[in-house]
Amino acid sequence: MLQRVSEACVRIDGETVGAIDRGLLVLFCAEEGDTDENVSFFARKIALMRIFADEDGKMNRSVVDVGGAVLAVSQFTLAAQWRKGNRPGFSAAADPVEGERLYDLLCAALRDQGLPVETGRFGANMQVGLTNDGPITIVMDSNDA
């Protein structure tokens, strides 16, 4: 999932470990079956998705075009299976070793697209703060790719 933000940060135990001004907050969840190719595809789409306003106020510019940055935060709870019962299940999430590998790959691929990338810490209890600009929130799922 990505959100267009005017600012975003992630804190762990009260310490800011990543922060950006204008750009994108990317909440990343690797699911069972996700591949390196999925991650590369997402990185290209994230970098080039035209969701920033041009001089006419139309969403025609990408985060690259506006000189923005990315704050990438791992969030396995996006894989929640919630329809049955009242406690969500997370068995669709990739195992932690593979999830961290794919998260690191995404961050590297975004940097390869020329983007400054700040991160959270995989597996940590994080507090994420953001000012959603728009609001613009886009759900990206590898099943839709």
Rank of each mutant, 00 (worst) to 15 (best):
A19L: 15
K45C: 06
D95N: 14
A124D: 15
F122Y: 12
G14Q: 13
I46Y: 05
A80S: 06
I20A: 05
D144N: 09
F41K: 08
S62D: 04
E98P: 12
P96Y: 08
D144S: 11
D34P: 09
D144R: 03
R61K: 03
G89L: 09
L48V: 10
L27H: 06
A108F: 05
D36R: 03
R87H: 15
R87P: 14
R44I: 02
E37C: 08
D144T: 08
E37W: 05
P116A: 12
L105E: 05
C9H: 14
V26F: 01
E100Y: 02
V17D: 15
Q113D: 08
M126E: 10
A72I: 05
Q127P: 08
I138L: 13
V73W: 01
D104F: 11
L130S: 15
R22N: 10
G57Q: 02
D112Y: 10
G18K: 01
Q113V: 13
F52A: 01
A8N: 10
D144F: 14
F122S: 09
M49H: 10
Q3C: 15
S74P: 03
S40F: 11
F41W: 10
D13C: 08
L48Q: 15
D95E: 12
G129I: 07
M49F: 09
M1T: 13
R4Q: 06
